[in-house]
Design a protein around this nucleic acid. Sequence first.
DNA 1: TAACTAAGAAATTCTTAGCCC
DNA 2: GGGCTAAGAATTTCTTAGTTA
Lengths: 117, 117
Amino acid sequence: MIGDRLKKLRDKHTQEDIAQYLGISRSRYSHYENERSEPDNKTLNKLADFFDVSTDYLLGREGECDTKKNKTKHQTELIPPLLDSFFQELKEAPKEQQELLIKFWDIIKSEYSIKNN
Amino acid sequence: MIGDRLKKLRDKHTQEDIAQYLGISRSRYSHYENERSEPDNKTLNKLADFFDVSTDYLLGREGECDTKKNKTKHQTELIPPLLDSFFQELKEAPKEQQELLIKFWDIIKSEYSIKNN
DNA sequence: TAACTAAGAAATTCTTAGCCC
DNA sequence: GGGCTAAGAATTTCTTAGTTA
């Protein structure tokens, strides 16, 4: 049940994408889709956030009708979900961590501009 | 979170009552209320059925005062200019660079969570 | 009686490594 | 690359027995 719904929701994303977002290994996420193990409550919450559905839907308590809404929403989104959830996370992170990351960003930028000159 | 909600919902019932309905031991249900362990998905479903609430409610995704939504909105309004321009830049950057940065982000997160555990 | 907890047993999950397509 | 799985390590849960109020 939950496996089918995850598969459907994931759509064009790779399992790797979702796993990275969740901060778990690829195979762990694979287990969820194949129902070899089930996500704990925290992971369940994250999955619902990422796919923008209810946990009731993920757990099979709600029918299909809500799915279409979500699909439409995803398809019309301009920011890729992975980047979007990354932004959400970063916004809520401690300032110290934000600043550190922006420093890394500056390094990445300058490295790439050197390569291309 | 889930513990508080279970306690509230149980109301006049004893833990024994609920445990019997779920077909589990008394102390196991007690652990759920005290958040020493968390119900698996099947038990979560049964609990939602018994109390006639959504799993989203049990997991704290819906609430009395809908704190999550308010919080998100508030924080969205308060994106510091530095972070905002960083987002703009990142959105338009090559995927390769985006992915590299997100990897750095994962490292930062895990470093900080180690410190705080 | 009702609820909570310690501690170890029991069960599940998670990761790595390797496999297939 | 993308997804799946075996197997053991790691973690969590679950039960019993005992404690508290």
